[in-house]
């Protein structure tokens, strides 16, 4: 037999697994996962929540950002097993059931703060959590760009995203936001 022919692929992964129970967008779920499964891949491949995007897989681009126990975090730098017992919110949780957009989504819509939209879920989750966590957000150009620095967009050049942050602050009635 030719040495170039590979042996049959294994029928099952040899990964160690663990059972995890967590709440995702308000829904309690329990699943058996590979211990090396990234939270980002768990959300997308095993739960079908493909709103969370995967870009760089090393924490630089920010498009996999979700909210973990009330704090925004990179789902590509979190193992699914670490999220056992956690409360996770993804971009799918933002709009109301009737389709009414979250204020930050509405602001992105109004200000045309996206073109291809690949990075948008990460921007939205970072910003939603920033507004939740920051009683008096810094709405100066520099302050906004500092918050946005953790998310990369290759289309828009950020001008409209900065404008959307200011518009979101207005819609959220943040003190100091121009009306």
């Amino acid at each position: 037999m030719s040495k170039k022919i590979r042996s049959a692929a294994p029928k099952a992964a040899t990964d160690s697994t663990a059972e995890i129970s967590l709440t995702i967008n308000g829904e309690a779920i329990t699943r058996e996962v590979s211990t090396r499964r990234l939270l980002s891949d768990f959300l997308r491949h095993e739960l079908g929540l493909t709103g969370t995007h995967v870009g760089c897989e090393h924490g630089v681009c920010g498009c996999c950002t979700v909210i973990i126990d009330g704090w925004a975090g990179r789902s590509c730098l979190t193992l699914a097993v670490q999220a056992d017992g956690a409360d996770i919110r993804t971009v799918e949780s933002l709009a109301a059931d009737d389709g009414t957009l979250h204020a930050v989504q509405q602001a992105f819509h109004e200000c045309h703060a996206l073109q291809c939209g690949f990075c948008t879920p990460g921007f939205l989750m970072s910003l939603v959590n920033y507004f939740e966590r920051t009683p008096s957000p810094d709405l100066s150009e520099d302050g906004i760009r500092s918050v946005l620095a953790g998310n990369l967009c290759r289309c828009t050049g950020y001008q409209n995203i900065v404008a959307a942050v200011r518009r979101a602050a207005e819609l959220l009635n943040v003190e100091g936001a121009k009306s």
């Binding site: 925004a72 990179r74 970072s126 918050v147 620095a149 953790g150």
Partner: peptide, 9 residues
């Protein structure tokens, strides 16, 4: 140090 979202974790 890195970005705000990284510092959260």
């Amino acid at each position: 140090v890195a970005h705000l979202v990284i510092r959260n974790r």
